[in-house]
C-alpha cells in the first residue's frame, strides 16, 4: 500500500491536487498477495476435495485415473460399505459401531466436563479459597504434560475402580483432561463479569449455587457454546485415550477408522477408506462450519495464557 502511494506522488507534485485519479491498486503487490493466498488455499482445500471425489468413485476408476479428477460415475456404494460392512479384524459391521460408541462416549463426557469446568471456573473467579489458585496452577501445568506420562497410573486407577475397559472410565478420563482448557475458559469469562454484579447478588442474599444458576448461567450461554465446541472436537478426535482405555468392542470411531484403513488384510479399497475417513471427520467438520466465529473464539480462548 505504502509503495503504490509513493509512486503516485510525483504526478501530484506539479499542479497541486490535480492530475489523473489514482488507479485502483491492482499492482504487482496485490497480485503477489492474492497469488500466495490462492496457492495456500489450494493446499488446504484440495485434500478435502480429493477425499470427497475419491469416496464417490468406483475402484476401477480409481485404479486407472487421476485422484484430482471428478468422478465419471458417481456411486454411493463406498459410503454404504464404510458405514455398515467395512472390516476390522473379525468384525465386519462397518464404522457404524465406532460411530455409536463415539456418541455414547461423547454425550456424557460433554455434559460432565462442561458442568464441572463451568463450576470450577465460577468458584475460581468468584469464590476463591485458600489454595484455589494453586490447584488451578497445577491444572494449567497439567495441560502441558504429555499424556503418556499419566497413562499407566490412570490404567491402575481405573482398574482399581473397576472401570478399566468401560465407557464410563473413558468418559471420566475425558472429563479430567478436558478440565484445564475449559476451566481456564470459564474462569476468564466469569472474571470478566463485573464484580459488582456478584456483590449485588450477595447483598440480595443469594449464595454460591443461587448466584451460579440464577445470575451467572443465563449470562454465559455463548461461553458454554464455545466450551461445547472445544469438547466435541476434542473428544470426537481423540485416539490415544480411546485406544488405551477401551477394548475392540467399545473402540471410538477414530480408533476403528484407523484399524479399518491400516488393516493389512485384503485388497485396499481406497474409495471405502476415504468414505470412512470423511464419515469420521463429518462431526467436527459440521461443528466447524456451523459454529464459525465461535469456533475461532474457542481457539483464541485456548491460546490465551493462564
Amino acid at each position: 500500500m505504502a509503495n503504490s502511494d509513493t509512486m503516485a506522488a510525483p504526478a501530484a507534485l506539479a499542479a497541486g491536487p490535480r492530475g489523473p485519479k489514482p488507479k485502483r491498486r491492482m499492482t504487482r503487490g496485490n497480485i503477489m498477495v492474492y497469488g500466495t493466498l490462492f496457492i495456500f488455499a489450494l493446499y488446504y482445500a484440495l485434500p478435502l476435495y480429493v477425499m470427497v471425489v475419491t469416496s464417490l468413485k468406483g475402484m476401477p476408476e480409481i485404479r486407472m485415473g487421476n485422484i484430482f479428477a471428478p468422478p465419471m460415475e458417481v456411486t454411493f456404494e463406498p459410503w454404504v460399505k464404510a458405514w455398515s460392512q467395512a472390516c476390522t479384524g473379525i468384525n465386519c459391521d462397518g464404522l457404524s459401531r465406532g460411530f455409536w460408541n463415539s456418541v455414547r462416549i461423547l454425550i456424557p463426557s460433554l455434559i460432565l466436563s462442561v458442568a464441572v469446568a463451568s463450576v470450577n471456573g465460577y468458584a475460581l473467579s468468584m469464590w476463591k479459597f485458600k489454595g484455589s489458585e494453586v490447584f488451578f496452577g497445577i491444572l494449567m501445568i497439567g495441560a502441558f504434560i504429555p499424556y503418556q506420562v499419566m497413562l499407566y497410573p490412570i490404567v491402575i486407577l481405573l482398574r482399581e475402580a473397576g472401570l478399566y475397559g468401560s465407557l464410563t472410565g473413558l468418559v471420566l478420563v475425558h472429563v479430567a483432561f478436558g478440565m484445564p482448557i475449559n476451566t481456564l475458559l470459564f474462569r476468564n469469562y466469569f472474571a470478566s463479569i463485573p464484580e459488582e454484579l456478584f456483590k449485588a447478588a450477595r447483598v440480595d442474599g443469594a449464595g454460591f449455587w443461587a448466584i451460579f444458576f440464577k445470575i451467572m448461567l443465563p449470562m454465559s450461554l455463548p461461553i458454554f457454546v464455545v466450551s461445547l465446541i472445544i469438547q466435541v472436537t476434542g473428544i470426537w478426535n481423540d485416539f490415544l485415550f480411546g485406544a488405551s482405555f477401551t477394548g475392540p468392542d467399545l473402540y471410538p470411531m477414530t480408533v476403528q477408522l484407523n484399524n479399518i484403513v491400516n488393516s493389512v488384510q485384503g485388497v485396499k479399497e481406497y474409495n471405502v477408506n476415504m468414505a470412512a475417513t470423511l464419515l469420521t471427520g463429518l462431526v467436527p467438520l459440521t461443528i466447524y462450519f456451523v459454529s464459525g466465529k465461535l469456533f475461532v473464539r474457542g481457539i483464541a480462548a485456548g491460546a490465551v495464557k493462564g
Binding site: 484440495l46 481423540d238 477414530t254 484403513v261 481406497y270 467436527p284 462450519f289 481457539i299
Partner: peptide, 27 residues
C-alpha cells in the same frame, strides 16, 4: 480463513489417512 482453519477441526487420524492417500505413489 474458513479454508485455512478447517483442517484444525479434523483429528490427526483423519489427517494422516488423507495424506497417506494423496501421497500414495501409485495412485
Amino acid at each position: 480463513r474458513t479454508i485455512f482453519l478447517y483442517p484444525f477441526a479434523l483429528s490427526f487420524i483423519v489427517t494422516g489417512l488423507i495424506w497417506q492417500w494423496i501421497l500414495n505413489p501409485d495412485l
